[in-house]
Write a protein that binds this DNA or RNA. Structure first.
Length: 332
DNA sequence: CGTCCACGTCTAC
DNA sequence: TAGACCTGGACGG
């Protein structure tokens, strides 16, 4: 499933668990996982935490009950492929396709944190570094992300339709098939316009982001957008997002100047254009395509847009944590 | 039963 | 720039 936001949620999930839970023993690899390396790690007690960058996630294990200077540690870099996820379950309910397993100690019930990946397209590398061929994270390194695109528009990577260029992880690390479709849809850019042409029109520094930083008004802008944005359910989402649909439906556009997108077959998902124009006027600063590469993933993660999403507050109390754990034993 | 489809890379021609 | 790499769910006959 995983695009940038899901990797980020997975990292938060792992870290939240790691703050409460002691792990111990070996890191176990499933017998069927032959392409991925063994993880040489066997400590009586260790901690886990994780962080993510685009479509990569790093798990760090450190020896002992608390992180001590000079203590042994090891990091594992994951790419999730099409179906990777982390799950936290009782050992007695070890998920099918759990290809790498971290076992707890001292929990009421023995628990296991697993990298689950039924298609096995996912990869991990021991002590792997962030992919040198992958760009900055649009959520957490927005300025760097934007410059990386704007300063490289001359490259042949931008010689292609914007919808293809947006899957290039060298520039759009964390953007996948679903996000690129949603982003294009939201900013009314025709998917098959040349990337260079679309992007050359943008400012090197985001007007939207400047406004965001300066004024605390931002919330209002975001709110306004939220009000008339249609929350597309995952199922409906798939409808729009299929490549074929993109081709067939988004290609027809009439009033380019006003960014009016006519999508004919995407019945349930048409945002009324009137509403759109209105919002553009009211909010003055309309997020551009690159802004949306920042905003949309952020919304998915639940940092914006009304407190939806998993509440993985590391400082939550035990009760909240228990509830959270029951609710979300899986984050993709 | 069968065919198609899936939030992603990889590498071989 | 096609396949290859995988499992399994949805849906058709």
């Amino acid at each position: 499933m995983p695009e940038g936001p899901e990797l980020h949620l997975a990292a938060k999930f792992i870290t939240a668990i790691g703050q409460r839970t002691l792990f111990g023993g070996q890191v176990v690899k499933s017998a069927v996982s032959t392409k991925n390396p063994d993880v040489e790690w066997n400590k009586e007690v260790y901690r886990v935490r994780a962080n993510s960058r685009g479509k990569e996630l790093k798990v760090v294990v450190t020896e002992g009950e608390s992180e001590v200077k000079g203590g042994a540690s090891l990091s594992i870099l994951f790419r999730f492929g099409m179906s990777g996820s982390f799950k936290y379950t009782p050992v007695s309910e070890l998920p099918k396709h759990a290809h790498l397993q971290f076992y707890t100690i001292n929990e009421p019930i023995p628990m296991v944190l697993s990298f689950v990946d039924y298609r096995r397209f996912g990869r991990w590398e021991v002590e792997g570094e962030w992919g040198a061929d992958r760009g900055p994270d649009p959520i957490w390194e927005y300025q760097a992300f934007r410059s990386n695109v704007m300063e490289n528009l001359k490259l042949s990577a931008f010689n292609r339709p914007i919808c293809e260029a947006m899957l290039n992880q060298k520039f759009f690390n964390g953007i996948g098939n679903y996000l690129r479709a949603e982003i294009l849809y939201r900013c009314g850019v025709r998917p098959f316009d040349e990337a260079r042409e679309v992007l050359s029109e943008l400012k090197p520094f985001s007007k939207w982001y400047e406004t965001q930083v300066k004024q605390e008004d931002v919330k209002n802008i975001v709110k306004q957008e939220d009000v008339q944005k249609i929350v597309v359910k995952q199922e409906d989402n798939k409808e729009i997002v299929k490549q074929e649909d993109v081709k067939e439906n988004i290609v027809k556009q009439e009033d380019v100047k006003e960014n009016i997108v006519k999508q004919e077959d995407v019945k349930e998902n048409i945002v009324k254009q009137e509403g759109n124009k209105k919002s553009v006027k009211e909010s003055k600063v309309k997020p551009d395509l690159l802004d949306l590469c920042h905003i949309l993933p952020k919304e998915v993660v639940g940092l914006e847009g009304g407190g939806k999403g998993y509440n993985v507050d590391p400082d939550a109390n035990e009760e909240e944590y228990a509830a959270f754990r029951m609710q979300v034993q899986e984050i993709r």
